[in-house]
Amino acid sequence: MATSEKTMEVGKERIDRLIDTMASLTTGEYDVTLDVDEKNEDEFTQVEFSMNFLIEQLIYERSENENKQQELQEKISLIEQQKQAIQELSTPIIKIWDQVLVLPLIGTLDTRRSQGLTENLLTDIATSQSKIAILDITGVPAVDSAVANHLLKTVASVKLLGAECVITGIRPEVAQTIVHLGVDLTEVETLSNLAEGLKWAFDRLRIRMTQ
């Protein structure tokens, strides 16, 4: 077994350089290459070459990885955008009559959604010169103090635009809960259902016209 006995001498400096390079790699610092003395090639040169090859490979993989991550990030933000679009679509603002808008709210109202809704409503009131907004909450499963607060704020902002707001469709169990919660909706016009809301709207418009 003569070959296995074969030994070679490698200068400490070359080994140190190799170790330094590996240390850099472990810290994520890939901007390193080993200087290889090609003229005096020996068996250790192969190790050095392999090391450089490995570094190139790592750099390539890392950039691939970054590309993938960016792609993923783009997809995530696309989904977020679509989610928002769906949310907005799910609350259409319907111009049901001249100067009358209806907002049929469905589902859970979180802070972001409520803010978006209020903004859209205010814009629509302004552009359509509407005088009355009917907020129908038949499709809202629960009204806690945060939701009530959003509704109150919306009503107040609508007033500031010189329009009026009525909330319709407060279900009996929701009404009871609101009272227990201690939220005061007495300042807000509320009616049992959308049909009542429309009647109210027409009355108000007639009143305005005859005034």
Partner: peptide, 12 residues
Amino acid sequence: VDQTRISTAVSE
């Protein structure tokens, strides 16, 4: 009614 009360309290 109680379901709504409970879920509203949880919400708060």
